[in-house]
Design a protein around this nucleic acid. Structure first.
Length: 561
RNA sequence: GCGCUCGUAGCUCAGGGGAUAGAGUGACGGUUUCCGAGGCCGGAGGUCGCAGGUUCAAAUCCUGCCGGGCGCACCA
């Protein structure tokens, strides 16, 4: 229950009803009510809400929008909507002003709901899965993974706040060609370190971290695998290294505040025969054919640019085959909506993955793929080229050591995934106020400081004021702050619907700004106990909202800085 | 060549078909006997890449062009 959403939904419905009544009265002519919006106008002088209903009706009604607007207003039932006045403005907007007493319920609502404030039941408990990062366990985490972690985890939190039953999942690519290359690389390092002069594989992983891993193995096991069957040697090396890498990935993500519900092994899909079963299923439906000794999926039937190989001519399944099985498995586990976060360099994979789901009989719209542009790292004013193969990159671990979890997460999650992020390492290292996370956190710390001082001087800060006192929060600064606080549930609703957590980062930045403005023009700890109580409750509410949103973004809300 | 994506203030970026396109940052000016100045207030800064089209209304949707990024393997 949210006062803001309640007013908006009620008024929206009443507007439709008013149009119907105007039609019944012969004042307005139309067949079907077109889509219209009721929203908070950008300009405060345009009131609390505005609708374009009259303008979208002009075509069907063949009347001037302002005339339509006056008919609608005439038939509008304002009972229980808090609307105190309506006016026709501009080309035909209807602007609504609310009785400012609607704000009286905002603070009690926030304080009674606490950390639940902002929750909306958009999802109605629907099971959704967010799969993100899923980095190859052959190396360290990089900037792209960092962005994926921040985005995926925040999206999952956001959807939880919007009433979905969310599961976070990491897909472990522990099978296939790259693991083979990984094994060869490990073997080469192992033999090199033990004095054997063997060439490094062409497709190998050059990362320094790999040498460290192998050194660790030698320290533990010595040259035990120097003169054994190469298959045995590689199997041991891979098993050891994979576990070490995965542990490292898990710990790094935990440090970033990311906790997965499921770690899903690709290899398990092969071991259980599910990959094979899925290919047989596709073949049964007639979507598989053979060419040049390989098995191909007719993915062009579903919008792909070209058909794709699923089983190589040597009999081994491709990564794509395993991925189809994996996504089939997700739907079989009962997820209604499956969300993947991929780097934009994988965009070519989207059409065929959705196509494969169609082929299996699933609605491809239930597989939603969010593509993020890759991160461009700037150091010393120059772009840092990053490549796993060459082993040259700044790791997520290093980023966190430099700028900290809060700055890293906020910085990534405040951007639209579609935009390329320029992450200036030098700037981020400065921990200067240029980083907006400090601005928001500072507001939170300042709020805590006021409450602390109140308590220290013996004031009971936990009182929820009576309405008569809340009505004294009537300055422009207080009202704007209250309105912003009231909007959180709607912000959650919109952000969840669009799956855009970056909106929340902007929301709390705006909120922090409104608070700072309020702070500069009004004292909280005044002598008048009733006014003081009202302002303290406003402060507590603001703190609560900041904390709730920071929680979604995975950024800490410090009491002191 | 084909496909996806982006192009908005000096820089980094917001902007759900709507009214006078916003914020941060940088530069400039003001602000501190008073709850945290890491703050606040102010002015300056724009042919929303270009050209058409759809619409009562386009930064937003469509088409073409220009420019950047990324894909187009029996790699993942």
């Amino acid at each position: 229950m949210s006062i803001f959403i309640d007013i908006q939904e009620t008024l929206y419905r009443r507007l439709g009803e008013a149009a119907e009544k105007a039609k019944a009265a012969g004042e307005l002519n139309y067949d079907t009510l077109p889509n219209y919006v009721l929203e908070k106008p950008r300009e405060a002088q345009h009131g609390d809400f505005a609708t374009n209903l009259a303008m979208v009706l002009t075509k069907q009604a063949r009347k001037a929008p302002r005339d339509i607007a006056s008919s609608i207003i005439k038939h509008l039932d304002k009972e229980g909507t808090w609307v105190s006045s309506c006016e026709i403005a501009g080309p035909g907007f209807i602007n609504f002003r609310l009785d400012q007493n609607w704000l009286n319920s905002v603070i009690p609502e926030i304080l009674s709901q606490g950390s639940k404030y902002g929750y909306v039941n958009l999802g109605q408990g629907e099971k959704v899965q967010v799969e993100f990062v899923s980095a190859n366990p052959t190396g360290l985490l990089h900037m792209g993974n960092a962005r994926g972690a921040a985005l995926g985890d925040s999206l999952a939190s956001l959807l939880t706040m919007a009433g979905y039953d969310v599961s976070r999942e990491f897909y472990i690519n522990d099978a296939g060609n790259q693991i083979h290359n990984f094994a060869l690389s490990l073997e080469a390092r192992y033999l090199n370190l033990l004095g054997k002069d063997v060439p490094f594989p062409e497709q190998g992983y050059h990362g320094e971290d790999l040498i460290e891993t192998v050194k660790g193995i030698i320290a533990k096991e010595g040259d035990k695998y120097l003169n054994v069957d190469p298959d045995l040697r590689r199997e041991f090396l891979v098993r050891y290294a994979l576990e070490e890498k995965l542990t490292h990935i898990r710990e790094t993500l935990e440090d970033m505040g990311v906790h997965y519900d499921v770690w899903f092994s690709e290899q398990s899909l092969h071991d259980s025969g599910f990959v094979q079963d899925t290919m047989e299923e596709l073949a049964k439906k007639g979507y598989i054919y053979e060419k040049d000794g390989a098995q191909w999926l007719k993915s062009t039937l579903f919008g792909d640019e070209k058909d794709e190989v699923v089983i190589r001519s040597n009999g081994t399944p491709t990564y794509f085959a395993a991925d189809i099985a994996y996504h089939r498995n997700k739907f079989e586990r009962g997820f209604k909506k499956v969300i993947n976060i991929w780097g934009a360099d994988h965009h070519g994979h989207v059409a065929r993955m959705k196509g494969a789901m169609s082929a299996l009989g699933y609605d491809p719209d239930n597989l939603q793929i969010i593509l993020m542009q890759l991160v461009r790292l700037i150091q010393d004013g120059e772009v840092v080229r990053m490549s796993k193969r060459s082993g040259q990159y700044i790791t997520l671990r290093e980023l966190m050591d430099e700028v900290g979890k809060d700055a890293a997460r906020f910085f990534f999650v405040m951007r639209d995934p579609d935009s390329t992020v320029e992450f200036d390492l030098d700037l981020a290292k400065k921990e200067s106020s240029e980083n907006p996370v400090y601005y928001v956190q500072y507001a939170h710390a300042r709020l805590c400081s006021i409450l602390r001082q109140g308590e220290e001087s013996g004031i009971d800060i936990s009182v929820v004021p009576e309405i008569a006192d809340l009505q004294r929060l009537d300055s422009p600064e207080e009202r704007e702050l209250l309105k912003k606080l009231a909007e959180l549930p709607n912000e959650i609703l919109v952000a969840a619907r669009l799956m855009e957590p970056h909106r929340l980062a902007h929301y709390i930045h705006d909120l922090a700004s409104l608070f700072h403005s309020f702070y500069n023009s009004h004292r909280v700890l005044v002598d008048d106990p009733r006014l003081r109580g009202a302002r303290l409750s406003l402060i507590r509410s603001t703190k609560q909202v900041l904390a709730n949103v920071l929680e979604i973004l995975g950024v800490s809300a410090p009491e002191r800085m």
